[in-house]
Amino acid sequence: MLLVPCPNCGPRSSQDLTYGGESHSRPDPKTATPEEWRTYLYLRDNPSGWLVETWYCSSGCRRWFKLERHTLTGELRDPILPGSKTGVASDEATNIQGGTK
């Protein structure tokens, strides 16, 4: 089970969190065309590689945050709370068990 670095609570087993999926920006609902809106709703990059995604620390601090995850290797980096410029502990939170950071 993946260790997910919550910017508040520190590394937690992924089961303690809720996965929010690929991060994407929301078009203006007043002006969005059907194509723009449905691209937001349905179309995904789904990369085999680094992916910016959202997690919800549902059994902990209940904060939504973003991080980058490599979808092949499971490596994680740069957890960040919305609104903040950098993660609370982004450097330390990455690659806890590995030799290089």
Binding site: G21, E22, T39, Y42, L43, R44, D45, N46, S48, T71
Partner: peptide, 18 residues
């Protein structure tokens, strides 16, 4: 499993998560 990756090669984005 690789549908999005292959489809990207043709420039066609898909409504898929793997």
């Amino acid at each position: 499993g690789w549908a999005s990756t292959i489809s990207d090669m043709a420039g066609v984005k898909l409504p898929i998560t793997t």
